[in-house]
Amino acid sequence: MEGVSYQRFPKIKIREVKDDYMKFELRETDASIANALRRVMISEVPTIAIDLVEIEVNSSVLNDEFIAHRLGLVPLISERAMAMRFSRDCDACDGDGQCEYCSVEFHLRAKCINDTTLDVTSKDLYSSDHTVVPVDFSDASSTIDNTESRGIIIVKLRRGQELILRAIARKGIGKDHAKWSPAATVTFMYEPEIYINEELMETLTMEEKQEFVDSSPTKVFDINPRNGQVYVHNAENYAYDDEVLKKAEAMGKPGLVEIHAKEDSFIFTVETTGGIKASQLLINAIEILKQKLDAVRLSADTVEADEQFGELGAHMRGG
C-alpha cells in the first residue's frame, strides 16, 4: 500500500529582513508549495481591523459609510491577532463580538475650532488596548519629515465640523475583506539560471557586446571593464522578458546565452502593511498552512471526508 514518498524538505534562506520587508529564498520545493505560501500570506493570515463603526456625530464633508470604509482600511498593529478569537466563534460574548477576547474598542473625537483645516488622522484613534494601535509610519523616516508627521488622514475638518465615533476592531482574514490582509506585496519569482556561451561571446566585438548588454531592460549582464568579458551582473534582475535571447537571435548568434528558470527555487519578496512584522507574517503563514494541512489529514480519516472529497478522500488516505 505504501506509495512512493514525495516528501521533500524545503529550505528557507533569508536574505534581507526589515520590519515590513523581507526577501528570502525558498528552495527544494515546487511551485505549489511556494504559491500556497503566497496565497496564505495574502488571504489567510489574520490581522485586526476596524469592522464596526458607531458614529455619534459626523458633520464632516464625508458621509458615514465613507468614513467607516476609510477607518476599516487603516492598518492596526496585529501582533495579538493570532492569539485572538474570531468574533463569530467567540464564546465569551454571545456572538455580538464585543468582548476583550475578540475585539478592541477605539474612540475618535475631533472637532475643528479654528480657521485652519484640521486633519483627523489615525493618530486620533484611541485604542482600549495599547497593543492594538494604528500603524505608525513616522519614525522610520523621521529625518526627512520632522514637523509632527501625522498618521493616515481619515478626514479633514473645517471650522465647526465635528466627528465623534466608536469603532470596534476585530480579527479577520484577507479572504473576507482586503482590510484584513497583512500583505501589501507578496510575490515570488523562479530563480533564473544563466549560462553564457563564452566561446560564442568572444566572437562578438566590443560594440556588439555592449549592445547585447544594453538590450535587456533590466541590468542582468555587464561587461568587465578589465578583460572585456560579459558576465552575469545579477541574474535575479532578469524579468524573463526574452529580450536578450531575441537580441542574440537578431545578431545571428542563437545560443549566445541560455536562460532557464530553476523549477525548485523561488525568491520571495514580502512587504507588509505594518500590521505585523514581515518575518512574523512568514511564520504565521507557515503555521496556518500547517493547520490547514492538519485539517485535511484529520478529516481524511472520517467518513465525512468521503462525502466531501469522494474518491479523492480515499486517495488521500493512501487508497
Partner: peptide, 23 residues
C-alpha cells in the same frame, strides 16, 4: 521611459498564475 524603469518597451509583463504559481 518604460525601458528606463525596467519594463519591456512593448508594455508587456511576465506574469505568474495566482492559482498554480506557474508562469
Amino acid at each position: 521611459t518604460l525601458v528606463k524603469h525596467g519594463f519591456s518597451y512593448n508594455g508587456k509583463d511576465f506574469l505568474y498564475s495566482g492559482i498554480t504559481g506557474e508562469p
